[in-house]
Design a protein around this nucleic acid. Sequence first.
DNA 1: CGGAGTCTTGACCTCTATCAAGTTTTGTGG
DNA 2: CCACAAAACTTGATAGAGGTCAAGACTCCG
Lengths: 254, 254
Amino acid sequence: MVERQPGAEPRIHNLRESCTSCSLNDLCLPVALDAAGIETLDGIVQRGHPLVRGQIVYHPGKPFHSVYAVRAGALKSVTVTEDGEEQITAFHLPGELVGLDAIGFDAHPSTAAALETTRVCEIPFAELEGLSEHVHGLRRHLVRRMSQAIAAEQEMLHLLARRNAEQRLAAFLVHLSDRHVQRGLAATPVRLPMSRHELGNYLGLVPETVSRLFRRFMDHGWMSVQGQSIGLDNPGALRLLTRSSSQVVQEHRT
Amino acid sequence: MVERQPGAEPRIHNLRESCTSCSLNDLCLPVALDAAGIETLDGIVQRGHPLVRGQIVYHPGKPFHSVYAVRAGALKSVTVTEDGEEQITAFHLPGELVGLDAIGFDAHPSTAAALETTRVCEIPFAELEGLSEHVHGLRRHLVRRMSQAIAAEQEMLHLLARRNAEQRLAAFLVHLSDRHVQRGLAATPVRLPMSRHELGNYLGLVPETVSRLFRRFMDHGWMSVQGQSIGLDNPGALRLLTRSSSQVVQEHRT
DNA sequence: CGGAGTCTTGACCTCTATCAAGTTTTGTGG
DNA sequence: CCACAAAACTTGATAGAGGTCAAGACTCCG
């Protein structure tokens, strides 16, 4: 559930602080900027207090003014249907941009909420657009991010339409590990910032099934679970699972 | 299967014809353009020979130069995984833009193929971008189309993750009918330009299940099938199915 | 320490994939 | 225009994956 906590309006205020760690390299905009461009961007990025679990960055109908970059922690993107059912469409780790599905519209179409204590950078879109008039490649980069979001969702469509529960969970774990590596972290102990319920929702499974699959993977010696920390003890086997079901999974030990 | 037919390179050639029926109102770009803008756009739109069923507009790896607008007929967008499995991610009816997932990249990441005899307009992207420097709202409209594509896929994610077969098919039919209405056509006899196999692939079902569901819906008196033509005899009942499964479907006759 | 929430495990049953025939439609060549 | 082959579609029987319901274990905080 996306709990609307009392007074849970995002705690992102207008503090204009320099936010260098949030701006360029590892974060949202790996674009070639000159020093002046960097300074300008840093000037428009806004940083706020950390969000606690469940707190909402934006919700459907909130006027679209900014996109957000995750600095630390994790967010989920959630769509809610008329009849109140929720579907988690993405998890966002540090370095990722959130709120792209609102670009071009007046209001956000989805919800973004913190999975754990999370710091985000707010990037006012109007100023980002102004900046992209002058900074070569910035607009292109933003559009590319949107295309990447489309591609990521297409991959999820394939996962949900063609893969069984085992393959979905294996693909999720491998993908999460890959994202860790991309960020320069170790591949194998990954942390699951979301609950079993949320993970199941994302993967189109009930929490019980997720739990049973964890058990099965552990019994195979493929992974180990210690609370939120997940060890991928046999990434090869898990990666094999993500491939087409026609291929038989033969024993594949380290 | 996306058959690469011998010599099936898209028959879209460089004929520069005026293509008014393709340009603005009912088609790709309902933007407020002045007469000069309309003329410019018409100038860059390219029309080609009709595509026959199975023929490919673009395929993964083809350099990205243009987006395409469907004029008549229908296309499918398909992603292919490393192991050769195909997933249809969208069907495109007349008036819709195709190829947006390539914007920002050098090559198309997916395949677009004709479901039936289909005419498309090729819109060279470089020239479209140049035009959008001058035409107010054009760029914004393109970006909005991308956001809409993201939103449409998010809805599909929900459909695949949370809905059963009955609900998926009902939602598809209702959605297709709604799209007909948007284009000014009658709501109730809709035509299915795709095979059962393709429809099942899109909905995460096998063709047999699609067939059985058609039978079930017909037995309920909710729809009628005559070849490709589908009559929605009780749209209310179908629409009711698309809602949350918690709500019991009581008999709902015309 | 205790209670609420989360997670795990088990028993059961439904939904849908799979396999296997038939039947209809489509396409092609005579 | 008809005949025949190939493909697409329909229908039935069956089995297995995963959802549902229920109970117990663990965790996190107050």
